[in-house]
Amino acid sequence: MSGTGIRVAALDDIPEGEGITVDRAVTGTEDDIALLRDDDGSVWALNDTCTHETASLAEGWVEKGHVECPLHASRFCLRSGKVEGLPATRDAVAHRVEVRDGEVYLFPNETSS
């Protein structure tokens, strides 16, 4: 991937505690990407589809470093995608994100630092 990443959103597009979906046509990834904004203002990216059932993590609840799936309450770490709560058992794929000058840049398939 490019060194500067793909500009995918303005920071203000994503309310704290919520998420938005970026289409895979933009990101070139196998799944759509959920951009998730934690309650401390930081932005994270995971594959959008929950690893348990078909549900959009961007529609989930984001707080304190985790996202909770809106359908069955599986919980994932925003930073690593690691599953932290049943019924999901498989980790979500995490992607690196950078915020520069109020713009959100995605680095598909790069892990977060």
Binding site: H52, E53, A55, E59, P70, L71, H72, P87
Partner: peptide, 24 residues
């Protein structure tokens, strides 16, 4: 405020329009 109504027994989930949207 919610986005879905999910049964806590087996996980059938319904959207705000009442549609069944998830059946494990």
């Amino acid at each position: 405020t919610t986005r879905n109504f999910t049964c806590t027994y087996h996980g059938w989930a319904y959207d705000l329009e009442g549609r069944l949207v998830s059946v494990p």
